[in-house]
Structures are given as structure tokens and as C-alpha cells.
Design a binder for these strands. Sequence first.
DNA 1: CCGAATTGTCGCAATTTTGTCGCAAATCCA
DNA 2: TGGATTTGCGACAAAATTGCGACAATTCGG
Lengths: 232, 232
Amino acid sequence: MTTILLVEDERDLAQVILRELDAAGYRTLHVVDGLAALESHACEQPDLVILDWMLPRLDGLEVLRRLRKSAPTPVLMLTARSEETDRIVGLEVGADDYLTKPFSMRELVARVRALLRRAELIRQTLNADRSDGVEVLARGALQLDPQAHVARLDTEPLDLSPTEFALLHLLLRSPGRAFSRAYLLDTIWRESYVGGDRSVDNAVLRLRKKLGPLGEAIETVWGVGYRLRPER
Amino acid sequence: MTTILLVEDERDLAQVILRELDAAGYRTLHVVDGLAALESHACEQPDLVILDWMLPRLDGLEVLRRLRKSAPTPVLMLTARSEETDRIVGLEVGADDYLTKPFSMRELVARVRALLRRAELIRQTLNADRSDGVEVLARGALQLDPQAHVARLDTEPLDLSPTEFALLHLLLRSPGRAFSRAYLLDTIWRESYVGGDRSVDNAVLRLRKKLGPLGEAIETVWGVGYRLRPER
DNA sequence: CCGAATTGTCGCAATTTTGTCGCAAATCCA
DNA sequence: TGGATTTGCGACAAAATTGCGACAATTCGG
């Protein structure tokens, strides 16, 4: 059976989430701090981890970092509102998805399903192309090091804004995949009160400019969004 | 057009909100009590509901509970209290977001937009769920990758419009099955089925052209619609 | 508190897509 | 075969989407 590990210290919220996942047919585990999370993960090998950002003993970011070193288990992070910087940092460390509090149970379950499905697909296709968020990504003369938070073009460092960096990182993580504007807004922007579709356009515009000739590798998928053209 | 149902008994506040939503380009409906809310929701099927917590005749929480039994319409709750317990109870029943009074119109509109966006995203995800939307489909030299949103003919990418892509995707998902024009309009054109049958014809026409020789694989089912001829 | 960097918004032009119409061609049915 | 339907298809206009510059709001150091 599919097992989900919930790492959440707010008891009330945790109760609600557990009941919901249970009802959705998943086996659930629950721990309330970061160290326990690592232990439980090592010993139970859950199929997915739901991880709160703020935790006693070891915060969510650090937990995520360490998880990533041991296994590719998909991670859904829970963050409180307006932790924008943290969010982008989290993306770079390799969380697979985010939910901003407050969120509905309906949405949580939907995301869990989506993540599990994606993980399954990756397992099936043996897609080695999947990055675990800490490895250096490259495409042609372009290179991106998530840990160092540096992108280079022909060894020349690119001066990217946080948004541009996150966008490029996301695109590089899945070359060839088309991202809808809605998905990008939900993944990179995340704050509910910002951004219409035009914001995405502009972010892409600015990134394309900074990438110079390689900017053309970011293709427009008409009526949908954008995609990084795979390396031949 | 996107329709929003506002359930709010304070007339003054309601006026302000309605004006704002109107200015933002949404179609608005307004009722002042819980029972009317359920009726209106059943009959108008709005895309989003803004629901006050305290209402005459049937309180917001109960309305929410009943709404959830009938439809997944996203709900934004307005509440005067900000206690943790209320938040938890609300989330459990399935509210999608909260606003605590007083709030700014700017924020309200932003949240509305975000909720609608997210609802669209969830709809997409669930849709993909139902129809194996992530597997690469193929038929002869033709290949379609839903994730990348790319179709190829002999490894050569085809430049398809959104409608053409959706149509080809649908056909490839069920080779041999005949689709009526009515069904296609309902499935691909969705609510915007302003188009008549001729729109379908044209979409097929354009798709056939772009498919070249393989265009003939899309057969006309006289008096009904179209079908993709199965591979031998 | 001031300047620089970042980012959201707006407007307009350019591009692409899509619905409609008219007529020819094909199909069906008696 | 002949007439009634239905479909194929080119052309055009309307609508939708995107590119992109300009500007404003915001943030962040110093």
C-alpha cells in the first residue's frame, strides 16, 4: 500500500490531514519534528513525504536537504504565507511541490495524487534526467549550479534575479516539458495575491534577454505556456 | 464568462465587493442567505463562491458542507474571527481560502484570481488522471507527448494549434472510436462552444493538412463525426 | 531616507488562431 | 438517377495570445 509520511507539529492540522489521507486510502505515518522525520524515512521508506517548513529540532529545509541525499522520495512542502525567499530556496533544494497555508484538504489530496503519479511515471520510464535539486544542470553552453546558486554561460556568470533563476532552474530540470502559466505561477510565484499571466511573460522575456542567443531555446507553446527545447 | 457567487448579508460590504469584481471583469451573482446560496449555486453553477461565515437561515459552514456534497466549486470564506479552530474546521469541510475581515479589495480580487487559477490547475490534473494524460501516444510515424505538449511526425515536430493538439490527443487516445461533433464540441471546445458543427469540420480539415499523408487516417463517419483509423 | 535592483502592470503592435460563409463535392436514400 | 443532406475547403474577418517597451510599486542595503 502507498505510504505517506507527514511531518507536522501543529497537532490540530495534522489530525485533519491524517484523517483525509486515510479516507483517500493511503497508509499514514506521523512525526512532529525534523530528526524523527529522518529516522522514520530511513526506516519506513514512505512513497511520499509531506513536510512542514517550520519544525522543532531540525527545520524543513534542512530535512529536505538531507532527504535528497539519501533518496528520491517526492516531497510536498507546506509553507506559511509570505515566506517568499524561503520558497525559492526550497525550489532550488528540490522540493517537488508546494502548498501555502491555508489550503483545502481537497487540494492537498489532489497534489498528493499528482506527485505520486509523476513519481510512478518516472520510475517506469527510468528517467535519469530527473534532477534531485542539488546537482549541476547543463544545456549546451549553459550551466546551473543550484547549491552555489550560480548560472553560467560559457563560464561567464549570469546575473539572474531570484525569479529568473528559479524559472531557469525549473525549465532545466525538465527539458522538453511544457509548463503552463498557471503551473509556473503556482510553482514559482506561489503567493496568492501576485501575478497575472503577463507576469510570466515578462519573466520569460527578461530571462530570454539575459540568455542571449540561447534565449531562443525557451520556446513558446502557443495557448499553453513555455518549454525549454531539449538539446537535439 | 467567469461567474462568481457572493453570499453576504451585509448590504454595504456586498455592494463594494460586487462593484470590485465587476470591474475586474467577472460576472457576479449575489444572495443574502444560506438557502438562497444553495439554490443559486445549483442553478447557476458559478465558477467560484465567496461565502460569509455568518448568515441568516443557514450559516456559512453548513452551506459549505452541503456545497461540497454536490460540486467541487472553489470557495473563499469571509470570516470575522480568526481563531485557529475555525480555520481548521473550515479547511476540513473544504474551504479553499480564507479572508479575515476587514480586508482590502485589492487582496480580495487577488485571492479570487489565484483561486480560479488553482481550480483550473486542479481540473487539468484530474483530467490528466482520468485519461492517462502523461503517456506518450503513438500511431505509425505519429507520436504525441502530452507532457511536453509536442506532436511529432517522423521525429519532426508538428506545429499544432491548441485546438488541433487537443483534437489529435483525443483521437489518439481512442483509435477506432467515432466521436460525434456534439461530443467533440463538448469535450474540446467546452463551455465556449459558440462554434457550430462547421467549426469541428474546419479543425479536422486543418489537422488533416498538417498531418500530411497521414491525414487520411482521420476518417469521416458520415452523419456522425470523425474517427481515427486504427493501425492495421 | 535615498538609490538601485527587482518585479508587477499596462498598452499597443504583431502574430496566430479560430469561427463563419459560400460553394463545390461527396454521400445517402428512395 | 435525382434531390436532399452532409462534408471538404479556400478565404476572410474576428478574436485570442504573445512580445515587448515603459512605468510604477516594492524591497533592500547602506
